[in-house]
């Protein structure tokens, strides 16, 4: 990669829209990483936590809009009731699929044992 040469202009662009919020946002980063199944070191977690904090501070401006939060958005063209007929299509060739698998045996994908706590 070439040398980093920040210019005044782009710094302006980069920071002009950003106004930090006053309230710190609570993030249990280890819990979030666990939910997302990401095995991260403590140092990594700390780094991401700080970045998430910055982004979320910025993103709290979505809360400036009044009214109840919405849970879904419509298709922009208003599509509804898209179904397929109950008709068969050709399935994939098992060998071609298993060729991409890190581990397989006798037509199965193979993984180590599951922890039965999750």
């Amino acid at each position: 990669m070439s040398t980093v040469r920040p210019t005044d202009r782009s710094e302006t662009a980069a920071t002009a829209f950003y106004t930090p919020a006053t309230m710190p946002i609570e993030i249990d980063i280890a819990h979030v990483a666990h939910l997302a199944r990401l095995d991260l070191s403590q140092a990594e977690l700390d780094g991401y936590k700080a970045q998430l904090g910055d982004i979320l501070d910025y993103a709290t401006e979505v809360q400036s809009l009044e009214g109840d939060p919405s849970t879904e958005s419509e298709h922009p063209l208003g599509l509804v009731n898209v179904f397929r007929p109950d008709e068969r299509r050709t399935s994939l060739d098992r060998d071609e699929v298993l060729a991409q698998a890190p581990e397989s045996q006798d037509g199965f994908f193979v993984v180590p044992p599951a922890l039965d706590t999750e």
Binding site: R88, S91, R94, L98, G107
Partner: peptide, 25 residues
């Protein structure tokens, strides 16, 4: 005849991983 979101057959007792496609996999 077919799965919920793809055209693979719903069939009990088939050879493993023979009724699979990009969607259900």
């Amino acid at each position: 005849n077919t799965k919920m979101f793809c055209g693979c057959a719903v069939e009990f007792g088939a050879e493993p991983n023979t009724n699979i496609c990009p969607v259900c996999l």
